[in-house]
């Protein structure tokens, strides 16, 4: 049984210029005790996906069809507001990109860490002890006195570790990490990722890890889901997707990763063009306008092609593409 199983998810936003099709036929699984990376450039629908799962879409957003099945039994799109509130936090928790903003500036870290356990009947002292335990787990030095300090007295990396501690305090089944390392510098990024990996093993939860940093995904994740313009264009194990990408977009994304550059270059490779206007989705492939491997079928709807065990790409040429060598 998968912790999270999404199928046929379509999300629309109503805008002044008509409906915007933000997520189209999104389907993927987050298996139990696995870390799944979601990768894609800005505007590809990563945040919309998180909000749809959490039931926190903006007022003009709407899940028009599809299923978000959590732990096999909860259909998240059908739950009431209160049922959803009871899942968020204890069962599904979230870590956000900006560690500076995720903590309330006027409450001490201890107050916030005790506050977040409000569903528990434990005494205040027990809750504080639990907070100290969690802070030690995320390697905050001098955890006990840290409780009395305010967020501005911690560095960015420490704040992000505190946020992670708070997210994992209730031992959720699913942790959604929304670019948790993007705002951190490179060294902190590595330690934070190792910490996340450790904690995930210890708690035994599943993680949905959103990032646009391919190196981080490769390092941390078991599976990867590549999104483009609100569609899942490719999904599979990190190994399969990174070594034999079946979608031209994945291929280009990998080629553009600065970490893969072996030679000095003045200009880093990019993918020219922009994400299409989602209010008027193209009939055929969403990536066609920027794709270098155009062929006759690009103006037709693309069907997800199976490329092997749990590896699929939404490109009619996927078989051919996956056999090409990854350049650069």
């Amino acid at each position: 049984m998968s912790t999270l199983s999404i199928s046929g998810l379509n999300v629309f936003f109503s805008t002044e210029d008509g409906p915007l099709h933000a997520l189209k036929d999104v389907a993927f699984e987050v298996p139990e005790r696995k870390i799944v990376g979601i990768v894609g450039e800005s505007g590809c629908g990563k945040s919309t996906l998180i909000n749809a799962i959490l039931g926190l879409l903006a007022d003009n957003g709407e899940v028009r069809s599809g299923q978000i099945l959590f732990e096999g039994s909860h259909e998240l799109t059908q739950l009431s507001k209160v049922e959803m509130q009871n899942l968020r936090g204890p069962r599904i928790s979230t870590v956000f990109q900006d560690p500076m903003g995720a903590l309330n500036p006027v409450l001490s870290v201890g107050q916030q860490m005790v506050n977040i356990q409000y569903r528990d009947d434990a005494s205040k002292a027990q809750k504080a002890a639990r907070a100290v335990e969690m802070l030690q787990l995320v390697r905050i030095p001098d955890a006990e006195s840290a409780l009395g300090r305010y967020p501005h007295q911690f560095s960015g990396g420490m704040k992000q570790r505190i946020a992670i501690a708070m997210a994992l305090m209730m031992e959720p089944a699913l942790l959604i990490a929304d670019e948790p390392t993007t705002a951190l510098d490179a060294t902190l990024e590595v330690t934070t990722i190792e910490l996340l990996k450790d904690l995930q093993k210890k708690i035994g939860c599943s993680v949905m890890f959103i990032s646009h940093h391919l190196g981080v995904i490769a390092e941390l994740c078991d599976d990867v889901v590549v999104m483009y313009a609100g569609e899942v264009v490719e999904r599979g194990t990190v190994r399969d997707v990174f070594h034999a990408p079946g979608h031209p977009y994945t291929r280009r994304l990998l080629e553009c990763d600065p970490a893969r550059q072996t030679e000095r270059t003045r200009i880093l490779p990019t993918i020219p063009g922009e994400i299409p206007d989602l209010r008027a989705r193209p009939q055929g492939c969403v990536f066609a306008a920027r794709c270098l491997q155009q062929h006759l079928g690009c103006d037709q709807p693309q069907v997800e092609q199976n490329l092997g065990h749990d590896h699929a790409a939404r490109c009619n040429l996927a078989d051919e593409v996956s056999n090409q060598e990854v350049s650069a």
């Binding site: 959490l54 926190l56 209160v82 959803m84 509130q85 009871n86 899942l87 968020r88 936090g89 204890p90 928790s93 979230t94 956000f96 900006d98 903003g101 995720a102 903590l103 309330n104 500036p105 409450l107 506050n115 977040i116 409000y118 946020a163 708070m166 997210a167 959604i176």
Partner: peptide, 19 residues
């Protein structure tokens, strides 16, 4: 963001206002 974080941790509107 900390209000969004609280929402995603399941806090109700009343709780967000109060806490």
């Amino acid at each position: 963001e900390f209000v969004t974080a609280a929402q995603s941790a399941g806090a109700s509107t009343a709780r967000i206002l109060r806490v």
